[in-house]
Amino acid sequence: MSFKQYFLYQADYQHWADDVLFNALDRLDEDTRRETRKLFFGSIHGTLDHLLFFFRKWHARLKGEHYAEGYGEVLYADWRELKNALRQEIRDLQRWLEYQPEEFFDGRLSYRRTLSREEKDVWVRDALTHVFTYASLERGHISAAGSALGAPFPDMAYYTYRLEMGEHLENMRKI
C-alpha cells in the first residue's frame, strides 16, 4: 500500500470515528457537553471545537497556507454546526489528499508555527501521522469525559473501522 492510499484510509477513518463519537455524545444534553472538565480545552464542546481548528490549521499548512483563525476562541457555539463543520473539514482534507500526486507524500513540508512563528520543516507523512494520531488522542479524551458523564463508551478503534468496512464491502459484492 502506498503512503497516499494509507493516508486516504486514515482520513476516512477520522470521519467514521467522529460519527461514532458523535452518536455517543449526542446522548448528553448541551449543558453537560459545555461543563468544564479535566480536558485541556475545558469542555467536551471546547475540545471538539479545538479539534476542528487543528484540522483546519494542518490542512492549510499542507496546502502551503497559514491559518490561525480561531486559535483560543470558539469557532462554533452550536453543537450541530460544530459537528457538521468538522465532518466537512475532514472530507475536504480527504478530497484534497486524493488529488495529490504520490510524490507529495514523500515530500517535505515547511510551515510557520501558529504562535511563535518559528519555521519548521518536516516530512509530509510525519505531519499527516501527527494530524491523525493527535485527532485520535483528543477523541479518546473526549470519549472518556463523555463516558464519565453518562454517554455510552464509543468503540472508535481503527481495527473496528476496518472490520466494518470489510463487512460493508462484502455485502456490496453480494448485491
Rank of each mutant, 00 (worst) to 15 (best):
F7P: 01
L8V: 04
Y9C: 06
Y9M: 05
Q10V: 00
A11G: 09
D12M: 02
D18E: 08
D18V: 03
D19P: 04
L21Y: 00
F22V: 12
N23M: 11
N23I: 04
A24Y: 08
L25T: 06
D26P: 09
L28E: 10
D31S: 08
T32W: 13
R33V: 02
R33L: 10
K38C: 12
L39C: 00
S43L: 03
H45Y: 05
H45F: 02
T47L: 05
L48K: 02
H50T: 05
L51Y: 00
F54V: 00
F55R: 03
F55I: 07
W58P: 00
H59F: 07
L62N: 06
E65H: 15
H66Y: 13
Y67M: 13
Y67L: 15
Y67K: 07
A68H: 04
G70T: 02
Y71P: 06
G72W: 05
G72T: 01
E73V: 14
V74M: 09
D78R: 08
E81N: 15
E81G: 15
K83R: 15
N84C: 05
A85N: 10
A85K: 07
A85Y: 10
L86S: 02
L86N: 00
R87W: 06
R87Q: 12
R87Y: 12
Q88G: 08
R91I: 07
D92K: 09
D92Y: 09
D92W: 11
L93P: 01
W96M: 13
W96A: 11
L97C: 13
Y99D: 13
Y99N: 13
Q100I: 07
E102M: 10
E102S: 13
E103M: 14
F104M: 13
F104A: 05
F104S: 12
F105L: 09
G107Q: 07
G107W: 07
R108K: 10
L109C: 10
L109M: 11
Y111A: 08
Y111T: 04
Y111S: 07
S116H: 06
K120I: 04
V122N: 13
W123P: 13
V124E: 08
L128A: 03
L128W: 06
T129R: 08
H130K: 04
H130Y: 09
V131G: 00
V131F: 00
V131H: 01
F132M: 00
Y134P: 00
Y134M: 11
S136G: 11
G140W: 05
H141I: 05
H141C: 09
I142Q: 03
S143D: 03
S143L: 01
G146A: 08
G146R: 03
A148I: 08
L149Y: 06
G150N: 08
A151S: 09
P154G: 02
D155K: 08
Y158P: 01
T160A: 11
R162D: 10
R162G: 01
M165R: 02
E167Q: 04
E170K: 14
M172D: 14
